[in-house]
């Protein structure tokens, strides 16, 4: 497990952030995730072997739930 920090730009609605957190947390290989609606910081604790796929799926979750926030991998 390792922790990585990423960011999204633009604004997201607070309820959406909570939803996105929930969905990313359910992904296979994710230990924990925390998203700050205030700073746009996204911290994911993940299985380093699955990093690529987790990030791709996370981006898809962002795009689906909150299209106005750009999650940068």
């Amino acid at each position: 497990m390792k922790t990585i920090r990423l960011r999204f730009t633009g604004t997201a609605c607070a309820a959406c952030c909570a939803k996105i957190e929930d969905e990313i947390r359910k992904l296979n290989g994710v230990g924990d995730v925390s998203i700050s609606v205030m700073t746009g910081l996204v911290k994911i604790k993940l299985d380093s072997e699955k990093k690529e796929s987790i990030l791709k799926e996370s981006k898809a979750i962002f795009d689906r739930i909150e299209p106005s926030a750009q999650f940068q991998i």
Binding site: A18, S34, M38, L41, K43
Partner: peptide, 16 residues
Amino acid sequence: SLRKGKTERLISRFAR
């Protein structure tokens, strides 16, 4: 900003 308090967690859960 990533460390959330009880209240924040509670409200996020409530929002669901």
